[in-house]
Design a binder for these strands. Structure first.
Lengths: 339, 339
DNA sequence: TTGTATGCGTTATCAT
DNA sequence: ATGATAACGCATACAA
């Protein structure tokens, strides 16, 4: 990568316009300048195609107009969606976005946080997994999904309500005996809320339910076993399965197929996240949709707006239900969507 | 976003260590410094938790250690994959990545390119759609998929070979009459190569073929019409359909289902791109896989390495075929994958 | 070998 | 209202 040739600087503009450096600065920053001077400067700027150097500007101001987004992995569809919307929200506020893939690596997460603290970025939006992440008090930081300490705001979906919603949908769709399947790190409180909400909803609507909860390090095969055990003699014990993510729902559906069970005829499935085929086509399954756009906008809002006075510790954004072919929604019967 | 408190500077380290500013700089940059001095400086650095300010450093050097990635949309799975691998490749080279979503907007694309030229980033990797994009000669730029002028290298999949490969697969799998379906902007030469390669392969293997080519602004419904016309009286004219992208293949498969045609029993489908469910699970359809990782690494290589002497104008990377449930691959029959 | 001085592009504080 | 000058944090040519 070779070095740039000279791009015009304020000094060049000043020389071209025959004015002093400070005058150019004032014009650029919209401070009062006599008309004839302003005109000459503006002409010179156009002629030289001048543009302020944001880094030099930032060095003076102690700002970089850059925000780092820490996220495990850009390929995951939910994370990709977050990246997409956060990017849009930031550029609307004239901020650049530095993408930092952490790959679930705690030490990488810490490294990026350190970078931010040394004035390299103005703030961080982080979806991190390091429970011991150290963030200086005065570093602008907004967490997604996992609260970091108690000093920084955290934005998440209303996971409890999402669990409830799933149970209610099952009840509305005629289910009686349902199951909840979850995997994931046990220190992730937010997905635990999905479970609690679901339990709560089942109780409220008189559904009997069973849970199967796995840790990250346990193999998926255990779920398949669980399903098999409940499929003795051609009859399946559940008429509804709530999966903690769409990804898990996808795997579960493959297992059900192996068992000769039809979705949604024999058993209905609801996932969580709101993943769509190709990012924006139809839903991969009936699901509780996380409001990715709202989450993104809230994060940026909290980070950028200096209404620092009272940052809420935890913001829960409302989730919605979406039909995706794996439930028996009456109004969706005729549509050929979602095989 | 509030301003940072003071982070330690070189001056602070120098004062702490009782040495001169330049000495600290030398230690930081690994230049020869007497042992006792070096030791004192290193201790001071640790004590103050000092870290160089990359922006100030960059202002001196005229480098920012930042590369901008221009890409239409982070949600698209193929783009997301590219983002993922480019991010990894860049950070291995100690470069940061600025993500610039262009949303297919030509003027936004131009804006980001301008930003780069004004010394805000050291280089650009761009997957752009603006045919009139103006890039200064001396701006380090690497294009993906669409050549920009003739002065910048372009990295792409070997689309021609991909088309050929699809035709050969169809032939191997027993097809006789196949179709090619394509949509997309007509100025995208690379996807045209897929067509040419496919034609070439069909000719070589004695397959009869038909093409249906749509422009971006034409509705998908025209494809459905095309398929319907070829499905008269319970018989379908084609036993294989090659779609220019996996996304299109997905839509086509839905249409085929509507027509009562089974995939792969009645008609086999091959897509292009290598999209996987959830980014890393199984393929959404049998497909010609673009080597996203290799593309990413090649882009970074070309951008970063100062072997500027002879930049190749167009680098074509090899594609592969992957089974994804929509073809009758013999060795894959027993697998329950990809419904 | 170590310290000093200058400049990168910008903004802000002064005199004028 | 405008122009000169210092300072931001760092690297480097040059002096000690």
């Amino acid at each position: 990568m070779k070095k740039e040739n000279q791009t015009p600087t304020m000094k060049d503009v000043a020389r071209e316009a025959g004015v002093a450096l400070g005058t150019v600065s004032k014009v650029v920053n919209g401070l009062p300048v006599g008309y004839s001077y302003r005109k000459r400067v503006e002409d010179a700027i156009k002629k030289l195609n001048y543009q302020v150097n944001t880094y030099a500007q930032g060095m003076k101001a102690g700002k970089t107009y850059t925000v780092a987004l820490l996220i495990p992995n850009a390929r995951d569809p939910f994370f990709a969606s977050l990246i997409y919307y956060i990017n849009i929200a930031l550029s609307r506020q004239k901020y650049r976005m530095l993408l930092c893939s952490t790959d679930f690596n705690p030490s990488l997460e810490q490294e990026y946080v350190n970078m931010a603290q040394f004035n390299k970025v103005d703030g961080i939006i982080g979806l991190t997994y390091n429970p011991d992440l150290i963030v200086e008090e005065d570093t602008p930081f907004v967490a997604i999904d996992r609260p970091i300490g108690s000093r920084f705001p955290c934005v998440a979906s209303d996971n409890f309500a999402g669990g409830q919603l799933a149970a209610e949908k099952f009840a509305d769709l005629g289910c009686r005996h349902v199951a909840f399947l979850r995997t994931g790190s046990s220190l992730n409180n937010e997905t635990n809320k999905r479970r609690s909400g679901f339990e709560n909803g089942c109780l409220a609507r008189g559904l009997s339910y069973e849970m199967k909860i796995l840790n990250d390090d346990e193999p998926y095969a255990l779920f398949e076993e669980f399903l098999m055990e409940h499929a003795r003699e051609g009859k399946f014990d559940f008429d509804g399965i709530f999966c903690v993510t769409d990804r898990l729902a996808y795997l579960v559906m493959k297992s059900l197929k192996k068992l000769g069970l039809r979705v949604p005829e024999d058993v209905q499935v609801i996932g969580f996240d709101g993943i769509r085929h190709f990012g924006d086509a139809d839903y991969v399954c009936s699901t509780i949709v996380q409001p990715a756009q709202e989450i993104a906008e809230m994060c940026v809002e909290l980070l950028v707006h200096e209404s620092l006075s009272m940052k809420p510790p935890l913001v829960c954004l409302p989730v919605t239900y979406a039909y995706g072919g794996t439930t028996k929604d009456p109004e969706a019967e005729q549509k050929g969507d979602n095989p």
